[in-house]
Nucleic acid binder design. Structure first.
Length: 960
RNA sequence: GCCCCCGUAGCCCAACCGGCAGAGGCAGCCCACUUAAAAUGGGCCCAGUGCGGGUUCGAAUCCCGUCGGGGGCACCA
């Protein structure tokens, strides 16, 4: 019982000092938040590790790990849109606790990264200062919302105790390679293995070095060069996304279709730079295939599949006429090879140097030059108009034996496939466009379907035509069979082979920014990288006077990245003993992208104090190890991959965080650090809360809360601000749109419980919906009625009766308990709230509210409105928190209705209703319906065509 | 251009496997309480499911087309 609630309300002098007002709600909320924290109410139990509590009874009753995508703590604090998912996971977690399960639900902060740094630069403070201040605000706001987070498990990615392990995982990945032949636990091939195993293979001569020289004869630098080709984290010099406006390079995932940076919308240029990459491509197949075993929104799965972009096809070699060279092409349509009438190379293709005859040098060089100055944006701007030039070279189509022209054109991209194509205008729209533009021959090799236009490529299904030589004929074969046949033929002659390519590229992992995890890598004087030994972790970020990045004119493609850490000379230049005596080294001055910290935080939540490992293996296996049952829709006979039970967050991370985290998790799995194959077993994307935006005649947003609504004579509302008319539209919630509403305001105006109930009853979790402050009062009224059903508003007395429930109330309660439980399980909190309101309204109409009815209702409400739930529970005489009180069970006997209303239809229209027993037989019901007076009047003597009986709810009579 | 999701009352949303279109909330109107207003409580009003076809005894639900909104992919061979 909270004493505070008694006293202060009196001060208002009102006649209802014990009414559930915002003030009273706030007092109750403060008191319970305080008590939950003091008592560690939400602490969960670990089976092993530093927090081992093997005797906790919950360990035997099932486990449940629930997570939110943790926030980046921005300077603006939370607005009402942010907590939607957080409240949903809190409701779910609180419900799960009442079922006896051991529930892990906590919250951390994704506090490294560009936005934090930009905010710090803007405000002239150190990023750590601003970030920490922001986290204080977030923590206060989350606490005020009544989140049942386990505070002691909270992590911050910027905490050296945390990023020590981020660096450690980086080193595990760095010190690994992908062994295509390694056998995984499920019998499949391919797994990350320690790089030492590869070194052994080279040293023993089981694997040839690229140069053919024995391993022992290679210099350390040469060896390192060989290993870099295999390491899962490696440095390579290659074209990367350079963003002068941000002063850093970016991963492909961080660049938009338009060739701009995802953050800031600055132009991005391709520059050849030496950068860290992660070999995520080694996992391309598993990242695609394992999606089938996850309970994720189909939308996200599709995005990941598209992004990885696996396509099956063949590599085919075309000999160059007059040269001892082959042009290797990748095609998904080897069946159309008889229609390959010319070839196209990307402007950057290395073979051009060697095969272009003197006569065409100038043309080709000029074309290459013009292509190189085009940005990606320009290259994509007009995809219809194809440009290109003839190289003067010819190649032999291996199927037809004919010499065909080799062209260079920028519609072929160096970065995909082999950078060269066989052009098949008859079956490819792009090739058709090019062939018509430059008057190149077209041969159809698939019979177009009836009515297909004469002047277009045919990309559909059909029998092969014009596809035969002396050895093989594809004619008449459907596409799939023709593919298989031609691949066999090509393979037999060593001309080609079936293959798979991917759109996914390796993950560019270094950034030239200050506010991130430093790489635990030093470089020696020969330019060889060395991993820092474990005992030198964490490598902390040095304090530098100038942490701001060197940024450039966003359009300055020629600029070069400069890492801020390079300026910290004393930090960079070090003398270390890495086993062969003290030597001088230079530290790597890059920092990791902000995605690094979020790749593994789910693991740290489980075991945040562990000093020996990122997570104790027994703890990981307990919380997220593979389950007995696979998720719904998983392929027959597949193994469960394990992972967090429920993960809720926005859909915008589909190919960023969610892809990266899966990759790291799989690497850690291969290396034996985790038993689960996937980090997040079930994922839900919460919708966004939008807000109305009001604009004046100039289109400028005006403060939404000052807008007045008037209902006009037509009944349509009109809006005005300071007397002038404004327009209303849907939009995001944001400062610049002047429509931000914060949870702090809602708490002051209504209380946090009301706010939580409102957010949850706005609609399904996944849905986008507009915020409407004036509707919040409905949720407050519900809680007020609930309160009044227990507490007298004038005296503060508890008014419940000890009488048994009447029949109707007992049935209503059973129905409600059953429905609310089902809704909570399925995360349909909106309909659960509706059911509770209904039942509460029923109780309101009774003379006195029976304890046996209100107590279960209080328990049901508590996951959504936990403070009022606890408070009423306590006032009803229970000294213990209700957090672990078993959820009300519905008596099955009461769920069976005594009578049900049976609808009698004639030709599908409802004509009569009958009250019948729920277990009435079909025949009996048919007779009853046909005997009904109203029905007899309607159908008279007409013959009956059929009578459909769906006992006990429906009879449909169809006269002839 | 291709693919996916969503259109139910003035508004936010329910309706499980095709079976009475309405659970809940907001707004509006009426009533009670009040000197009055607010707050509170009680009651009432409100759509035939974007549109056009089809399947079915029966369609918000399934199918086809179309319009509107949102999202994804897009010179990826």
């Amino acid at each position: 019982m909270t004493d505070t609630s008694e006293t202060k309300a009196d001060a208002t002098g009102s006649e209802t000092p014990h009414r559930y007002t915002a003030e009273l709600a706030n007092q109750i909320e403060d008191a319970w938040q305080e008590r939950w924290e003091r008592e560690g109410t939400f602490h969960s139990a670990n089976p092993a590790g530093p927090w081992a509590e093997p005797d906790d009874p919950r360990l035997a009753r099932g486990h449940m790990m629930v997570m939110d995508m943790f926030p980046y703590p921005s300077g603006a604090g939370l607005h009402v849109g942010h907590p939607l998912g957080f409240i949903a996971t809190d409701v779910f977690s609180r419900y799960q606790r009442t079922t006896g399960r051991n529930v892990l639900h906590t919250m951390g902060f994704d506090a490294f990264g560009l936005p934090a740094e930009q905010y710090a630069v803007q405000t002239g403070q150190h990023p750590r200062t601003t970030t920490e201040a922001n986290m204080v605000t977030y923590r206060r706001q989350l606490r005020a919302l009544g989140m049942g987070h386990e505070r002691r498990r909270s992590i911050e990615t910027i905490d050296p105790d945390y990023y020590r392990w981020t660096q450690w995982i980086f080193l595990q990945i760095y010190n690994s390679w992908y062994d295509e032949h390694a056998v995984r636990a499920d019998g499949q091939l391919g797994a990350a293995r320690p790089i030492s195993e590869l070194v052994e293979q080279y040293a023993a001569g089981d694997r040839a070095t690229p140069s053919g020289q024995p391993w022992a004869q290679l210099t350390p630098a040469e060896r390192e060069g060989v290993l870099a080709e295999h390491r899962l984290a490696y440095v390579s010099s290659a074209p990367v996304n350079w963003c002068p406006g941000l002063g850093t390079v970016l991963s492909n995932e961080e660049v938009t279709n338009e060739g701009k940076s995802e953050r800031g919308d600055f132009p991005v240029f391709k520059r050849n730079l030496s950068q860290w990459k992660m070999r995520i491509t080694a996992y391309a197949d598993r990242l695609i295939d394992d999606l089938d075993r996850l309970d994720w929104p189909e939308k996200i799965k599709i995005q990941q599949r598209n992004w990885i972009g696996r396509s099956q096809g063949a590599n085919v070699s075309f000999p160059v006429v007059g040269h001892d060279e082959q042009i290797m092409v990748f095609t998904t349509r080897p069946d159309t090879i008889f229609g390959a009438t010319f070839m196209v190379l990307a402007p950057e293709h290395p073979l051009l140097e060697r095969i272009v005859p003197e006569s065409h040098h100038a043309d080709v060089a000029a074309y290459q030059r013009s292509a190189s100055t085009k940005s990606d944006l320009e290259r994509q701007a007009d995809t219809k108009a194809k440009t290109g030039v003839f190289t003067g070279a010819h190649a032999i189509n291996p199927a037809t034996g004919e010499a065909i022209q080799v062209w260079v054109a920028d519609y072929v991209l160096m970065g995909y496939g082999t950078g060269a194509i066989m052009a098949v205008p008859g079956q490819d729209e792009r090739d058709w466009a090019f062939a018509t533009a430059y008057d190149l021959p077209i041969i159809r090799t698939v019979q177009p379907s009836e009515g297909h236009p004469e002047d277009e490529a045919f990309t559909g299904e059909g029998p092969a035509i014009n596809s035969a030589n002396e050895e093989i004929s594809l004619d008449g074969l459907p596409v799939a069979e023709a593919k298989a046949a031609i691949i066999d033929w090509l393979a037999d002659r060593g001309l080609g082979e079936g293959t798979i390519t991917y759109r996914l590229r390796d993950w560019l992992f270094s950034r030239q920014r200050y506010w991130g995890e430093p790489f635990p890598i030093v470089w020696d004087e020969q330019g060889v990288a060395h991993a820092l030994p474990d005992d030198q972790l964490p490598l902390t970020l040095p304090d530098v006077p100038d942490y701001s990045p060197r940024t450039f004119d966003p359009e300055d493609a020629e600029s070069m990245p400069e890492a801020p850490l390079a300026r910290a000379t004393e930090w960079v230049e070090v003398e270390l003993d890495l086993g062969d005596g003290p030597k001088r080294y230079r530290r790597d001055t890059n920092t990791m992208p902000n995605w690094a910290g979020s790749c593994w935080y789910h693991l740290r939540y489980m075991d945040p104090e562990n000093k020996e490992a990122p997570v104790d293996p027994a703890v990981e296996a307990y919380w997220i190890g593979p389950r007995e049952e696979t998720v719904a829709g998983a392929p027959e006979g597949s193994r469960d991959p394990g992972g967090v039970d429920l993960y809720i967050g926005g859909a915008e991370h589909a190919v960023l965080h969610l892809l990266y985290a899966r990759f790291w998790h799989k690497a850690l799995h291969d290396l034996g650090y985790v038993s689960s194959e996937e980090p997040f077993r079930r994922l839900i994307n919460q919708g966004m809360i939008e807000a109305y935006v009001y604009r004046d005649h100039r289109g400028q947003p005006v403060p939404a809360e000052e807008v007045e609504e008037t209902i006009g004579e037509t009944g349509d509302p009109t809006y005005s601000w300071q007397g002038q008319p404004v327009t209303k539209e849907h939009g995001k919630m944001g400062k610049s749109l002047k429509n931000v509403v914060t949870p702090d305001e809602m708490r002051a105006q209504y209380g946090s419980d009301t706010f939580r109930v409102y957010e949850m009853s706005m609609g399904p979790l996944e849905q986008y919906r507009p915020w409407e402050t004036r509707a919040v009062v409905g949720s407050q009224r519900f809680l007020q009625r609930l309160w009044r059903n227990v507490v007298d508003e004038e005296t503060g007395e508890v008014t419940v009766s000890e009488d048994p429930l009447d029949e109707a109330t007992a049935r209503f309660l059973a129905r409600t308990a059953d429905g609310v439980r089902t809704d909570f399980e399925a995360l349909r909190v909106n309909t659960a709230v509706a059911k509770m309101i209904e039942f509460n309204n029923h109780l309101t109409k009774l003379d006195r509210v029976p304890r046996a009815a209100i107590e279960p209702l209080v328990q049901m409400v508590a996951p959504v409105a936990p403070h009022i739930g606890e408070e009423l529970w306590s006032r009803l005489g229970h000294p213990e928190s209700l957090a672990y009180e078993p959820f009300p069970e519905a008596d099955p006997a009461l769920l069976v209705e005594e009578t049900v209303t049976c609808v009698v239809q004639v030709k599908g229209k409802v004509r009569d209703r009958l009250e019948v027993s729920p277990d009435i037989g079909e025949d009996e019901l048919r007779e009853l319906a046909l005997g009904s007076e109203r029905i007899r009047e309607l159908i008279g003597d007409a013959e009956l065509r059929t009578v459909i009986v769906r006992a006990p709810k429906l009879v449909n009579i169809v006269p002839a």
